[in-house]
């Protein structure tokens, strides 16, 4: 008997507490920038695709829901020929973002992805690619890499010496 009265009393007290529930979808939830939601592919400061098709996201993915194929443009710049994420399998663990050496793949604060048809949860590159640098502005992988992929000449990258003159005997 006492426990029933206690329960009613406690419930009554909740009338005077702050609301936790929000009136979604009229009212939107505030999410932090690093909230792990929908996955996007970003672009570098120069507008080029950041993804270099290194397959590290795919291999890091615990549910194996990322498949891609790397290809190259005429300058030797790598980019994905196709990039597919099966969101019906994705667990939003963020390992792909951790693994990405170029800040290309990022999880953004968006979770509104529900679909009636599971097939619609298969996202291709055109669905994933956004025209933004996302959370990490200013990084262009090809400027710090050694390769010349049409972004910078050999020796003109950050922290690089000019190419060696192999005919020189100077120390």
């Amino acid at each position: 008997m006492f426990s029933h009265i206690r329960t009613i009393w406690l419930t009554f007290l909740h009338l005077f507490k702050r609301h936790v529930t929000i009136q979604y979808p009229e009212e939107k939830i505030k999410l932090r920038p690093r909230w792990r939601g929908r996955i996007v592919l970003t672009k570098d400061p120069d507008g080029g695709e950041r993804c270099v098709g290194c397959y590290l996201c795919a291999v890091a993915c615990p549910v194996d829901c990322i498949a891609l194929q790397a290809t190259e443009d005429e300058n030797g710049r790598r980019y994905p020929e196709f990039f597919r994420i099966n969101f019906s399998r994705c667990i939003f663990c963020g390992y792909c973002e951790d693994a990405c050496p170029t800040y290309a793949i990022q999880l953004i604060p968006d979770f509104e992805m529900a679909e009636y048809n599971r097939q619609n949860l298969v996202f291709e590159k055109e669905d994933l690619l956004i025209n933004s640098q996302g959370k990490y502005p200013g990084y262009n992988f090809y400027k710090v890499a050694g390769m010349n992929a049409g972004v910078k000449e050999k020796g003109e990258g950050e922290n690089e010496d000019a190419p060696v003159d192999i005919h020189s005997l100077m120390p």
Partner: peptide, 16 residues
């Protein structure tokens, strides 16, 4: 053992 993309390779044809 680290073969990737198992659940995405054919997902464009059929998600199952």
């Amino acid at each position: 053992h680290r073969y990737s993309g198992r659940t995405a390779i054919l997902a464009n044809k059929n998600v199952s």
